[in-house]
Nucleic acid binder design. Structure first.
Lengths: 391, 391
DNA sequence: CCCCTTTTGTCAAGGACATAGACAAATTAC
DNA sequence: GTAATTTGTCTATGTCCTTGACAAAAGGGG
């Protein structure tokens, strides 16, 4: 019957990809307009659109109207045809969301992280997904992909988390494998700061630039780098691990090995220590410290200023190595305008070509957004990507 | 007659590309084997190979023999079908070479740089190319591409050289444009250290790794970064300008602005100044200094050791930001084993995960090699690349 | 030396996918 | 109502790929 031909449908794939991309870029659009924009013939577009509609990827949504000539039926992406999950695993909270093919959030939730770690987290993820799927009006087996953001250094090849100080027992299992087997869905695991950078690239400050860095400053420090429009992971997945930058202390002091020289100098612990050292007595958390600063306390101002000075030097070093157009700051410390303004003041004094500095647009949702961005991109790739055979 | 169809030859392009890649990867090969390796049918392969042979890209070179069955005609890339030029513009010497489609050097030469700079260099390049073409048994108009390596920071979009301290008058003209118009050949201009990195990626130490940095240490300092297998240029083409790293001096000292903090601390001038400071009297050049070191002079040892210590810290900083698997050193200072051994000693003391360190495989030909690598890659792309239409 | 097996490369038929141009249908403009 | 415009389908044609048959050209064993 079917003449058993493993044909090369490559031309049709390319046409399909062009159609889908055109509809994504233009929203509601008629077949005639798709033909004009892609340069393909009307006939081809009609065929492709028919197939896509039959398979549920496109749906007719209305008609053109008001112009001379016959009205055209307009088509749109059927956003619900692809749903994916983004999870942001933090040491205290887990945030999770389901998004559709267009990146719309259709369900979102947040719970406390199970402090027992390890396999208990896999159970927690699994429950979260079932619950979110229900809220989204679907079931977990309809989900196409999970993107999981986690602190720590991940092996780029296997997805194994090699170093994860703040989450117990997570480096003992191959989280990606175990979780993926449990849910029977592909799972992508990525460093949380890298995801935050992707989030800014997708729908934040990085939307119009292909070279920027996301610097997270909080209890720990980290960086995600977007260069040439894509994420840098490095040889061992440790690109952007600026905790170990030889800045803010003696690089040859072995104490810097465990925690990292730069992290020891600008993490929240260091900031509070500095505040106390300057004679401050009214702050036991970073939030208190900034409150004291805003109340005009000089020891708080000095602690913040000194931190800003070190961060400025670090950004100068990053600028010399990577030449980003923009540095986006985030995290509990990095998203404070008081600190960022101080950094903006120091930067032109320690580097001749200072990059622009912006505070993350998404606050603590940046990694969650990035996961959704990755998920949407990956779904598009899987569903409509043109993959040439590797020879 | 030809029915005037602007057909989609995309399927044929893909097949052609697969064939060419297979022949590149396997050398002398028969059509039957190409069919097996690509998965395409014998018929298709015969058609494609016939076209490629008619256009001069492939040539028959021999026959299989000794196995049962009919002997097959074997084909090879006709290397001479594409020739390109690589030029390395230095402040004292210009090196230039012509290479073929397989990257074989078919002509090479070296001359002194015209000290008047500017347009005089364009004349010099033009003469060099005519002369090289003659030596290669062809004429300049048969050359497909020129890759020019130059010191300085280049605008990634226009190819204009924005900063070029050591070559007079070269930032006043758009060298790429002027040179390309003069020769009527496409010209690619790239930073010389970036080219050196590409050279190592192509046929040097970087051949098996996709994440490494080439660090040039000499009169000035610079770095070329290969990440995810491709060159990083940064937003303004200044990625790798480690002259400005805030290491080896006070980052907030405005003196570091003009020359760069790190360059001021480890360039050849600084090294000699340090040697004199330690009481040395027997060296006025870096070569002298290393001779003194090998003669056992303690002030030379101290100068080299102090430089190595600073370079190690810089590599630690680069490692924290980029996580390279390998750092390749080059330049008049960076290619000295005495210095590199000292760096290897310091590195594990200032970073927990030190990258491997190797000395450039090509000495002062690294940039020339890189230009050839780029040229070959670009020729392949232009000639056989599959370009999907942008929607 | 002949015949069998193996391998190469061409021929012929058929299918998938694209294009161009004709044309019917639907709608606005006057 | 008629003309102009636009949409979307139909038909004819061409390119490219695949499969299977087959001739041609080798080696190997009796």
């Amino acid at each position: 019957m079917n003449s058993s031909v493993a044909q090369t449908p490559i031309a049709r794939k390319i046409s399909t990809n062009a159609v889908i991309r055109t509809v994504f870029a233009n929203g509601s659009i008629s077949r005639a307009d798709i033909a004009k924009l892609t340069g393909l013939s009307k006939q081809t577009i009609s065929d492709v659109v028919r197939d896509l509609e039959d398979d549920g990827w496109l749906k007719p949504v209305g008609q053109t109207d008001g112009r001379p000539g016959r009205n055209a039926i307009t088509y749109e992406i059927n956003a619900r045809a692809g749903l994916a999950v983004s999870i942001d695993l933090g040491s205290t909270k887990i945030a999770a969301a389901i998004c559709d093919l267009l990146g719309n959030v259709v369900a979102e939730t947040k719970v406390s992280t199970d402090p027992r770690g390890g396999m208990h987290l896999v159970n927690q993820f699994s429950d979260l997904i079932v619950e979110l799927a229900f809220a989204a009006g679907t079931t977990a087996d309809k989900l196409r992909l999970v993107v999981l953001g986690s602190p720590g250094v991940l092996d780029p090849a296997t997805g194994h988390i090699n170093v994860a100080p703040s989450i117990p027992g997570i480096d003992a299992i191959n989280l990606r494998q175990v979780f993926s087997d449990r849910m029977a869905i592909p799972v992508i695991v990525e460093n949380d700061v890298n995801l935050a950078a992707q989030g800014e690239r997708w729908r934040g400050h990085g939307i119009e630039t292909s070279n920027f860095a996301f610097v997270a400053l909080g209890t720990g420090v980290g960086m995600g780098i977007i260069a040439n429009g894509t994420l840098l992971r490095g040889a061992r997945g440790a690109a952007g691990e600026i905790a170990y930058l030889p800045i803010g202390g003696d690089a040859f002091d072995p104490g810097g090995f465990t925690l990292g020289t730069f992290e020891s100098a600008v993490g929240s612990v260091a900031m509070l220590r500095r505040y106390v050292g300057f004679g401050g007595r009214n702050a036991s958390t970073v939030a208190d410290l900034f409150a004291a600063f805003n109340a005009g306390e000089t020891s708080a101002a000095a602690a913040i200023e000194e931190t800003a000075r070190l961060v400025a030097v670090a950004i100068a070093a990053i600028g010399a190595a990577l030449d980003p157009e923009l540095v986006i700051t985030g995290g509990s410390i990095g998203s404070r305008p008081e600190l960022v303004n101080a950094i903006r003041g120091f930067l032109p004094r320690c580097t001749p070509y200072p990059p622009r500095i912006e505070i993350s647009r998404f606050g603590n949702r940046a990694a969650l957004m990035g996961g959704m961005g990755i998920a949407v991109e990956r779904m598009h790739d899987d569903l409509f990507g043109v993959k040439l055979r590797e020879v």
